[in-house]
Write a protein that binds this DNA or RNA. Structure first.
Lengths: 126, 126
DNA sequence: GATCTATATTCCTTAAGAAGAATGTAGTAA
DNA sequence: TTACTACATTCTTCTTAAGGAATATAGATC
């Protein structure tokens, strides 16, 4: 069942944090590293786990891999409902709030690669 | 985090079916056996898993163990939201609908022990 | 006390998952 | 070509989990 796979993705804190951040828009691996402050392997493997189960998509942009949630119209009902649910549940959580705060700071210094490129932002954003 | 434990409970189909049935009210192990058509060990162990993580409560009534969701006011926000979410997600699923149908049939022949007792129902309900 | 019933626990096997170290790779820059 | 950057994969170790067979236990019945 598809639903089970969603729950499997949701039962690890690192993955919850990744998904939570992705709800704000696409990001590349180095952004996650900076925000979560976790080693690259760990981030990369969890993103792979999410990708295998269809919860995120990946696309390359130069050296960067851009991860994103599937486009709205492609999200299953189960995914949509559970993402909303997740957001409710972690709204007051310190870790998740800090992640969001860091994301906002990051956005000022360095937008996601897609956007950064469009803006002609500095190359070495990560 | 408490939320993770909830998701851990939700990522097995058997446990989803158990929780889904419990949303209709308390049940004992033999009821689950009949409805899910799964061996006793399996049911019992999954109920134990749920109990350890606080998603269900257990109380003895004679030979029977009655399992139930925690009373409404004792359910965490996370649990409440996720149970509602689960109910939405499986509403159209054949397996879960069949479980509900069987539960209703079961109720006619043999109410949960608590109720059965109160009604003076036949002893050997399981 | 002996037996039966409903349920739990233990033991075993197998598989999946998490984490880190080391290494590989695709694309960029010089 | 060489070197660098961002990321992925492989290998190993450890832990958790699932399922079934066999056995144990608590309470009811005789």
């Amino acid at each position: 069942m598809k639903l089970i796979q969603i729950y499997q993705c949701l039962c690890d804190e690192t993955r919850l944090r990744l998904l939570h951040l992705l709800m704000q828009g696409p990001l590349c691996v180095c952004h996650f590293q900076g925000i979560l402050n976790e080693p690259q392997v760990k981030i990369s493997k969890h993103l792979g786990y999410l990708k295998t189960r269809g919860l995120v998509t990946a696309s390359r942009s130069g050296n960067w891999m851009i991860y994103a949630l599937p486009p709205q119209q492609k999200r299953s009902v189960e995914l949509r409902v559970n993402l909303a649910c997740l957001q409710d549940c972690v709204a007051d959580n310190a870790v998740f709030k800090r992640d969001l705060a860091r994301l906002k700071k990051l956005d000022l210094a360095c937008a996601p690669a897609q956007i950064a490129k469009a803006r002609g932002a500095v190359r070495k954003c990560c």
